[in-house]
Design a protein around this nucleic acid. Structure first.
Lengths: 245, 245
DNA sequence: CGGGGGGTTGATCTCCTTCAATCAACGTGG
DNA sequence: CCACGTTGATTGAAGGAGATCAACCCCCCG
């Protein structure tokens, strides 16, 4: 279920330069090292339920998690996609506002809330980085508002694929070499929850983009992108949107 | 056009206890006092265009502004509604990401970006408050994602009215006494841009809510709410959502 | 009195949802 | 090895919520 055994050195950590600890000096890092602990979750496992008491915060180290909201009648909207280095939890809040679910096997680097908040008060570098990350998330949320409010189903799918491509590229710092390709970390239903669509519409639009040669599929999850500019055009973004090129 | 003349004492400021300066001690406040300046804008005036260089940040003191994104073909989505005490601009970013527009006559308390960033580095209270405010905005944005992605037109209208009522109540700290009533600070078209609808649909749904007795109209802008619980129910929110009651 | 901005209402259309059938991949147990 | 159930995905047909196009109203102001 959970694995508290592994304990990686912060200096070896794959998300060292992007996570909430990115700005920390080595002495600050060693203090964090002392209070951190790892937790593992299986694909499909719920990490926290909305409304639950939440006594920790943490960073996604490997794997992918989602933030979702659910209405009483079951309508669901995903409000965040958490990739490695993303932060979970809110300092100063004791109750979770969203469901957090692991969509793949997941490892998180956690801190109990109280020690982390104390550390934050004493370590401006952490608060600074957290502010940066929160502002980035706010930008992403606002970009998503445009998508949800105004884009067509086809544009939504194209946007989702290009955003995943962009984030993956940013994470691995690898230049798009030859044909770009991405793994969709979500099922059709999860995509639908993210995009404010039904799973059937997601499936239809993916098929349509494939038929029109905008993407190619290899299995259900793996997408190849012969022409990234074409995809961005289909997404309806301003041409420069991605800084991927 | 712009009025740089007035200069209110921070201690007298109506947004003193909610804005980015809320946590400042009196000595910190007097340093802010020295670098602040006021700017006034007329209703309808654009404060900043997306993509423009932006060399200041600031707080809305009085009036209402909006943040909007526009696609190449003209589709518009509002991504933020700025009420008094809300913060405009992003430290560490020199180019505006959204159009900012005054929808009413507006007064802002501004700081040139560089001095403000310096001040932020030296004054944890400011960065702390800004982090709090940004996290609140992120929550609001995520609530809006649920609205845009999953709510019906009727639910969207009911949600908008209840959110404005909630924010107005929070600002004036007045208990809902007798019949609740709010002024809509937006035209039908602006509401449509906020809700991801057309102005015609907004108009129709407002009429429908009126016909069903959920709201009463007095003129086009003034809304009376005979039963706030009924409105919240129409909004599709979890019953406790507003903490207004 | 004319004109324009904001708002309402009506008729039609369309894109997406809904409901449903089918399929492919996979594991399980007889 | 094959019948069976399950899960995720695709495809089809029908219906509906909201968009689109258009007419009209109200009120203020020059």
């Amino acid at each position: 279920m959970q694995d508290h055994s592994t304990h990686v050195q912060c200096s070896e950590c794959p998300i060292r330069h992007r996570a909430v600890c990115a700005k920390c000096e080595s002495d600050e890092l060693s203090r964090l090292e002392q209070i951190k602990y790892y937790r593992s979750f299986q694909a499909g496992q719920t990490i926290i339920w909305s409304g639950d008491r939440m006594d920790f915060v943490g960073s996604v180290v490997t794997g992918i998690a989602t933030l979702t909201q659910t209405m009483e009648d079951g309508r669901r909207q995903m409000v965040g996609l958490l990739l490695p280095s993303d932060f979970v939890g809110r300092p100063g809040r004791s109750v979770a506002a969203y469901d957090v679910t692991a969509t793949t096997d997941l490892v998180m680097c956690c801190f109990r809330k109280k020690p982390f908040e104390d550390m934050m008060a004493a370590t401006p570098h952490i608060a600074q980085r957290l502010l940066e990350m929160t502002l980035d998330e706010l930008d992403a949320a606002r970009e998503w508002m445009l998508l949800l409010g105004r884009k067509t189903a086809r544009e939504k799918i194209a946007s989702l694929i290009s955003i995943i491509a962009r984030r993956e590229a940013a994470l691995h710092l690898r230049k798009p070499k030859g044909m770009l390709s991405v793994d969709l970390p979500l099922t059709r239903e999860e995509m639908a929850d993210y995009l404010g669509l039904t799973l059937e519409t997601v499936s239809r639009q993916i098929s349509a983009l494939k038929k029109d040669g905008v993407i190619a599929l290899e299995g259900n999850r793996h997408v190849q992108i012969p022409d990234i500019d074409r995809l961005l055009e289909e997404a309806g973004d301003d041409s420069d949107g991605g800084m991927l090129v």
